[in-house]
């Protein structure tokens, strides 16, 4: 187990290094510490992007593992509880209103919308802390946010705003700087701590809600941790990168055969796996030929969907 974890951590280090090297200009490690023009690219562009990729991949993988454990459903990911789409709604609204030129305001709007929707989710489900209620309320919130986003786009005053929104919605790490890292990191870290605290309760929950309660698990408190932790991590990551899907869905699936199905044992591996996946995918985006760059969110879906289908057909996805 420890060896597998070490290997996975090594993969993350390698992916991080790849992310520093890869791009239209290949910067090998030997050139990392020289005093030339490369240093500017490395420290101004590549490093923040790699740090952000690492952090966002980690929280997406972690929150996916937590949500699958909490809902006891292998189909769960941050998308189903509506955090991503509500954060996107906040950001899109800011862009359409033309107040998004200040990254702080864009970030604030996305976080506020994510927080609002999580508060609504908590209010809708706190009376009965059950997974079915949670998933239904989350799905409704997700589609409501989606509809509101479409509405906001449709009343956009000019085509430039629409182009900007669509660009942003696709999700990317392009041109993110240290300011974005500084903005998001506190939320990501706090949310990670909150999510990591759910581990033992998630294990007990695999015996069902009644049994978990009989084992002394406070389901209301657990639900609050899940909602709060997901809101912080996924909200902040959507606020800086846009919507990057599939990571939270496929990473726990990939790692379950390797690390076992016990939810708490899957949290750290999923965080590492998510980080590696996003770093590698983002590096590949930059390495693809062409004038523009494939958006990370698009690349993730293009890699993720067929891959998930393959897992499904191979019968590696456990339904129970």
């Amino acid at each position: 187990m420890t060896r597998k974890l070490a290997l996975l951590a090594l993969l993350v280090v390698a992916a991080f290094a790849l992310s520093l090297m890869a791009g239209k200009l290949w910067i090998p490690p030997a050139a990392w510490f020289g005093h030339d023009a490369n240093a500017a690219i490395l420290f101004e562009l590549r490093l923040p992007r790699a740090v952000l990729g690492l952090a966002i991949g980690a929280v997406l993988g972690l929150s996916g593992a937590v949500l699958q454990g909490y809902l006891r459903n292998p189909l769960a990911d941050p998308g189903v509880v509506g955090v991503s789409s509500s954060a996107a709604l906040g950001a899109v609204t800011a862009i359409v209103l033309g107040i998004a030129s200040n990254p702080l305001i864009l970030f604030g709007c996305a976080m506020a919308a994510a927080g609002g929707s999580m508060a609504l989710l908590a209010a809708l489900t706190w009376r009965q802390a059950s997974a079915v209620q949670f998933i239904l309320a989350g799905t409704v919130l997700a589609s409501l946010s989606g509809a509101l986003t479409a509405f906001v786009i449709s009343i956009a005053p000019n085509p430039y705003a629409v182009a900007e929104v669509i660009d942003w919605l696709m999700g990317a790490l392009t041109d993110r700087g240290m300011d974005d890292v500084r903005l998001a990191l506190p939320f990501l870290l706090l949310g990670t701590v909150v999510l990591a605290a759910t581990g033992p309760s998630l294990d007990a929950l695999s015996l069902g809600e009644d049994t978990a309660r009989s084992l002394g698990i406070r389901l209301g408190r657990l639900q609050a941790l899940v909602v709060f932790g997901t809101g912080l991590t996924v909200g902040a990551s959507v606020a800086v990168t846009g919507v990057v899907g599939f990571v939270g869905l496929i990473v726990p699936h990939l790692l379950r055969p390797v690390f076992g199905a016990r939810p708490s044992a899957l949290l750290l591996p999923s965080a590492l796996g998510g980080a590696a996946l996003v770093l590698i995918a983002d590096s590949l985006c930059r390495l693809l030929p062409g004038a523009g760059e494939v958006r990370l969110g698009v690349a993730m879906a293009l890699i993720g969907a067929p891959f998930f289908l393959w897992l499904l057909l191979k019968g590696r996805v456990a339904w129970n």
């Binding site: 006891r72 294990d203 929950l205 695999s206 015996l207 069902g208 009644d210 049994t211 009989s214 076992g260 199905a261 016990r262 939810p263 456990a318 129970n320």
Partner: peptide, 13 residues
């Protein structure tokens, strides 16, 4: 407490 028709949701050891 041992519930009726208890099930285990993941393939735990």
């Amino acid at each position: 407490y041992l519930p009726q028709e208890a099930r285990v949701h993941w393939d735990l050891r």
